[in-house]
């Protein structure tokens, strides 16, 4: 900035940033490392590499079925939430109507209300209609939770769509439905995929609602918690490594496929 004035802050900032990364990644890295270590309790000294915990996890019998449940519930909830979110995002992007701000606020509420409270509330309703304790009930409640994040990503994409593109389609003779399917939907595809991935993550990691609502068909976070309160088990490291791998895939998918599309300045616009 000023000649001869040495600025120590950028260097300090980078050191601080490095320490922050250590803090943020420490639990993730250690969890994966100790999933391959023979130690009964994670700690030093390391006792050698092994796949024993993975074998034990496969034999153990609750974690893998729980992963299966999660891989059933989360994609389903993400898909329904994304479909609902797409149509709502389209309407919110295009139309004006009284109470729009209030509606936007209500749509965001499920992410702002602590999931603990939602969990108790969902249980109250579902127990009343005898739907509690099933995977289906988790699906129903997770859709509420994941719709808002999916919607916000899709809305971000739709807000990049010049209004004239839709008008051009009408002007050329397309009906509103034709315009929606042939112009708006293709334009929104990156947002829809991004919204789906975000929705999937929200549902896949969600613990407390699933804890209240699920019965014997536990999702993965609930199953992990059940084991965790009983004892510390390195089989958790093994399942954790698998779950982190899934999350990393989602994250790479978002970074490589979607962020460039989502944040690209549209060259098509004048």
């Amino acid at each position: 900035m000023i000649a001869g004035d040495r600025n120590p802050w950028p260097a300090l900032g980078r050191v601080f940033l490095a320490l922050s990364y250590v803090f943020l990644f420490l639990p993730l890295v250690l969890l994966v490392v100790f999933s391959f270590q023979a130690n009964r309790f994670p700690g030093l000294p390391l006792q050698g590499w092994t796949l024993a915990w993975y074998e034990k996890m496969i034999d153990q019998g609750t974690l893998l079925p729980a992963l299966g449940h999660s891989m059933l519930v989360s994609p389903a909830a993400a898909t329904v939430g994304t479909i609902i979110g797409f149509f709502a995002a389209y309407a919110l992007n295009r139309f004006d109507f009284p109470g729009k701000t209030v509606l936007l606020g209500i749509i965001a509420l499920p992410i702002l209300i602590p999931p603990l409270i939602l969990g108790v509330a969902f249980l109250g309703l579902l127990a009343r209609v005898h739907l509690n304790g099933t995977l289906f009930s988790i699906f129903l409640t997770h859709v509420v939770l994941v719709t808002a994040p999916a919607l916000s990503v899709i809305q971000l994409r739709l807000s990049q769509m010049p209004r004239q593109i839709e008008e051009a389609a009408w002007d050329l003779g397309a009906t509103e439905l034709q315009t929606l399917m042939r112009v708006v939907l293709p334009f929104a595809v990156p947002g829809i995929l991004g919204g789906w991935l975000l929705a999937f993550t929200f549902s896949f990691d969600e613990f407390i609602i699933a804890w209240f609502v699920s019965g014997f068909d536990q999702t993965l976070p609930v199953a992990i918690y059940s084991i965790l309160v009983a004892s510390m088990e390195p089989t958790l490291n093994a399942i954790g490594a698998i779950v982190f791998a899934i999350s990393a895939l989602v994250l790479i998918g978002i970074e490589v496929l979607l962020l460039p599309l989502l944040f690209r300045k549209d060259t098509e616009e004048a």
């Binding site: 010049p162 004239q164 593109i165 008008e167 051009a168 389609a169 112009v183 293709p186 334009f187 549209d266 098509e268 616009e269 004048a270």
Partner: peptide, 9 residues
């Protein structure tokens, strides 16, 4: 249109 409004996809 002034900005052409061509369908980018």
């Amino acid at each position: 249109w002034q900005n052409y409004a061509l369908f980018p996809h």
